[in-house]
Design a protein around this nucleic acid. Structure first.
Length: 549
RNA sequence: GCGGCGGUAGCUCAGCAGGACAGAGCAGCGGACUUCUAAUCCGCUGGUCGGGGGUUCGAAUCCUCCCCGCCGCGCCA
């Protein structure tokens, strides 16, 4: 709806320009806000901006602008200070509801994406251990963002980059082999930095079943075979966790496939462009010209490529697939990595501004007030699976989005485990279930609530609480737009809590199933609007909307 | 030391592209279920927006310095 007023204001400014005032229209950002109720429904501050250019009083500029505005949906325009406040006709809100009932789950689907192709890469956790709670946050933010992008007309590819090559993976195989020897009573030495988690024993047991022959193989070969096998087992497990979180990927990209050919070609390209040099037997990338603190190794002195080298090749591959833009969702601990990756992309001749990197801050697990540490190497980690079993998908997804992603999140397990109050997801879901319950009651009592066969007399929706709800429904598309523009899916969550709150208040004060047919139909129409938006809002963050609770 | 992100009510956090008197939830206190699900609602209490300077008609929001917390700074990934 903001867009509607934006264009009205734009039109007025245009008329000013036509009347000969020296204003550069493009230099004036048109900001539409929802002011305090007492001022109006929508407001703009453009008069302040223009007054600075024209050196006139904001109030006078506002007056001039107001004279140029005529719109059938506006009931009253007021100038206060320098603000221009619009009060909208009641019919305007009714039109919003009418539109929601007609468009249903399509309501709020803007077309800002225009079919542009977006690649969003997220999670990409190493297949050397189970997903933990921190991965979960990135997964939820990434997937919700993907849903929002789709909602506004982008063609989205969800991608998972599997680090199935290199030292860590070898260490995984080595750890499993050691446990296999241990379980069979054989002689073994556990690798120094090996993975100590309990899941390694699980894998070892599986391997004893499926691959007992590796025990008789030469160690290096055994490790290689086990590593490859274990990565697949881990990915099955990771995918299982993600699926239960409501997340599926379109593309799984294996780092292994980059080895030899693509990494080699990538480094050759960098060499050709003069961005590499040799030092201490290693090949380095000149990342300092791109703002990095120091240059980075691509090929170690032992001839093996670093993770960075394959990551450059990976990004090169992605850019060759030619998306309109790219989003990487990373843990905040990778922030130091941005400069060199973007630098490498630029060095390869691609437009690095097409890549946005989203950093997701750490999740601090708290149990009964005490912090729980998350270290992959230590035994006790809190896995995403454990949390899924405890609180379920809906609560996890919702709670992860009750904080903006660049703020640390304290995830209190003791609270999230409670299936009662305190858990905000229930509050929103309950609003949805309550509305469904109203419909069920109507059926039982044989009350006609059919919105398709009855004429909806919108003017009967006239209580202050009802108009407040309509206004809230009207800003849903603005919320979606803001989510996408700022890459901030958490705004949906806060919006839904506000909408649910308005509804619960209303529900407690007014009766929907009135005997009067017209009034009842009108109120059901309002409820249906709320229900549609809640359901769609929840869908966008991957949370279910139960009909019964 | 350098860099990133935070520092808003007792606690956990919002605050829309700088805007009109700083909001919500929880906790605390007091109320509302013979009436569409009380997982709800209503009322009250509660803040020098970490601190100093600056830009602006206007700053929680932008710039700068300082303080505190977490994280990163590998020929690890």
């Amino acid at each position: 709806m903001k867009q509607y007023f934006r264009s009205i204001v734009e039109g007025a400014i245009e008329k000013l320009v036509e009347s000969g005032l020296p204003i550069d229209r493009s230099s004036i950002p048109i900001i539409i806000e929802y002011p305090d109720k007492k001022y109006g429904d929508y407001s703009t501050n453009v008069a302040f901006t223009i007054s600075r250019i024209l050196k006139k009083k904001p109030y006078d500029v506002a007056q001039i602008l107001v004279d140029k505005i005529h719109d059938p949906n506006i009931e009253k325009i007021e100038v206060s200070g320098g603000f221009i406040n619009f009060r909208v006709k009641r019919d305007f809100w009714y039109m919003v509801l009418e539109r929601i009932l007609k468009e249903r789950e399509k309501y709020g689907s803007l077309n800002v994406g225009q079919g542009k192709r977006v690649n969003i890469e997220f999670v990409s956790a190493n297949p050397t251990g189970p997903l933990h709670v921190g991965h979960g946050r990135g997964a939820v933010v990434g997937d919700s963002l993907a849903r929002l992008l789709e909602k506004v007309g982008f063609e989205v590819t969800r991608e998972y980059y599997i680090n199935d090559a290199g030292k860590q993976v070898k260490l995984l195989g080595e750890s499993i082999l050691a446990r296999m020897y241990e379980l069979t009573g054989g002689e073994h030495t556990f690798p120094e930095d090996g993975y100590k988690g309990k899941y390694i024993y699980d894998l070892a047991k599986m391997a004893l079943n499926e691959k007992p022959h590796v025990l008789d193989m030469e160690k290096e070969e055994a490790i290689e075979e086990l590593s490859f096998w274990a990565v697949n087992r881990m990915m099955e497990r990771i995918n299982n966790d993600l699926r239960d979180l409501g997340i599926e990927f379109d593309v799984y990209f294996s780092e292994r496939t980059l080895y030899n050919e693509e990494i080699k070609r990538t480094i050759e390209e960098l060499e050709k462009k003069g961005y590499t040099y040799e030092k201490d037997g290693a090949i380095w990338f000149k990342s300092t010209p791109f703002g990095d603190e120091k240059d980075r190794v691509l090929i170690r002195s032992d001839g093996t490529p670093t993770y960075f080298a394959s990551d450059i090749a990976y990004h090169r591959n992605k850019f060759l697939r030619n998306y309109d833009f790219y989003i990487n969702v990373w843990g905040a601990d990778h922030h130091g990595y941005i400069k060199r990756v973007k630098g490498a992309i630029k060095a390869l001749g691609f437009d690095d501004s097409k890549l946005d990197i989203l950093l997701i801050q750490m999740v601090n697990l708290v149990r009964n007030g005490k912090p729980v540490t998350m270290s992959k190497r230590e035994g006790e980690i809190v896995t995403l699976r454990w949390l899924l079993d405890e609180v379920g998908k809906d609560a996890i997804r919702f709670i992860f989005l009750t904080r903006k992603q660049d703020a640390h999140l304290d995830f209190d397990i003791s609270i999230a485990t409670k299936q009662t109050e305190e858990n905000p997801v229930f509050y929103v879901q309950y609003a949805h279930a309550r509305i469904c319950s109203i419909y069920r009651t109507a059926m039982e009592k044989n009350l006609d609530i059919d919105l398709t066969r009855n004429e909806i007399k919108y003017s009967l929706i006239s209580e202050e609480e009802e108009i407040e709800i309509l206004k809230k429904l009207a800003i849903f598309p603005d919320i979606i737009e803001a989510c996408v523009k700022n890459y901030e899916p958490h705004r949906i969550t806060f919006y839904l809590m506000e909408l649910a709150s308005l509804f619960h208040s209303y529900y407690n004060r007014f009766k929907v199933l009135e005997q009067n047919d017209d009034l009842r139909i009108a109120r059901v129409a309002l409820c249906e609007g709320v229900r549609i938006v809640i359901k769609e809002g929840l869908r966008l963050i991957g949370v279910s909307a139960p009909e019964v609770m």
